[in-house]
């Protein structure tokens, strides 16, 4: 069977595995990303979801927004649960409890808190063991479900409720963790970074991830207008600016080969991204000029490092 072409007209006619009526905030990128990921997959999917905004907002008993099999167990164990489900699938095929030709794609969704922080160990273990599943990190750069607390994905200088801006604190003091790099170091078949503003790029990556012979990881920037403090209508615009400023580069690591999948025609200054969001508003006061310069320098440094890894001219 030929894969569904990635064109909007055809895709819009597909039934979305995540129905409307869920309780995610208006403009939440998590719903957009979930639909993009699942619509890219033609085979039946089973979803494993860690605790977080997506889970709480889509399954308030006795309702569910999921039209596909879905399981949530806890916060830090999404990858371990996925490993168990995937192992069960293999075992049940072996003892012929399910037909051998039944193809199922296992997709795990978890937030940055559930992935960069508390669930990193379980994820690392599952990747090392080589379970065949796609793990999607919905990276909204904070613990949003519990009310916008910092995570190790929160960028330097960002306001959160646990990195408040005060007389002696300019928001989060530390740089964000390079999780995509850490996952790539596991040498799994497919690792990529994506953004919902670049939906075709994201969906093509999902296709590659699912076709990979082993675990695949997708880190997706997931704008949270509540936590990032902006108009809910601007979700994709803010996301696009993260890509255009090279704050969130789009790339993939396929069997160890790094490749940039999108290069902005003209790299925009980081302030174009920062100024759209209330969480960075304080940075535009004169006393934080140096910090903005440091943030720009760090974005440049990481971007150039990525270009070199991808064999692009710097």
């Amino acid at each position: 069977m030929a894969a569904t072409p990635l064109n909007l007209k055809v895709l819009s006619e597909k039934r979305t595995p995540l129905s409307g009526g869920h309780r995610l905030c208006a403009g939440c990128a998590e719903a957009i990303i979930v639909k993009q990921v699942l619509l890219a997959i033609d085979d039946p999917v089973v979803v494993i979801n860690g605790t977080g905004c997506l889970e709480v907002s889509t399954t308030i008993f006795p309702y569910t927004a999921w039209r596909v099999p879905w399981i949530h167990v806890a916060f830090e164990n999404t990858a371990a649960v996925a490993a168990g489900v995937e192992a069960a699938y293999r075992a049940l095929i072996r003892r012929r409890a399910i037909p051998e030709d039944r193809r199922v794609v296992f997709v795990a969704f978890a937030g940055d808190g559930g992935t960069y922080d508390i669930g990193l160990q379980a994820l690392s273990g599952a990747l090392e063991r080589g379970h065949k599943f796609l793990y999607v990190c919905l990276d909204n750069e904070g613990y949003m479900n519990t009310g916008i607390q910092r995570s190790s994905a929160t960028p330097r200088g960002a306001w959160t409720t646990t990195t408040p801006v005060g007389a002696v604190m300019p928001g989060k003091p530390q740089w964000r963790k390079d999780l995509t790099g850490i996952i790539a170091a596991h040498r799994i078949p497919y690792v990529a970074q994506a953004a919902p503003s670049h939906w075709k790029d994201l969906m093509s990556k999902v296709r590659k991830a699912v076709a990979a012979d082993g675990p695949a990881f997708l880190n997706v920037l997931a704008d949270c207008n509540r936590g990032w403090r902006h108009d809910p209508a601007l979700t994709l615009e803010v996301t696009r600016m993260a890509v255009e400023t090279c704050y969130w580069p789009l790339f993939e690591v396929e069997n160890g080969v790094w490749r940039l999948s999108y290069r902005p025609r003209r790299k925009l200054p980081i302030t174009e991204y920062l100024k759209l969001q209330g969480r960075f508003a304080h940075l535009f006061q004169p006393e934080y000029q140096n910090l903005v310069a440091e943030i720009q320098a760090e974005v440049d440094r990481r971007w150039e490092e990525l270009l070199r890894r991808c064999g692009e001219h710097v």
Binding site: A80, A83, G84, V85, A87, A88, L92, G125
Partner: peptide
Amino acid sequence: VESEHSALSACVGAAAAGA
């Protein structure tokens, strides 16, 4: 697995999957 927490988590996933 890499921990007992993951051991039982994997068992929960597997059992829910019918194993």
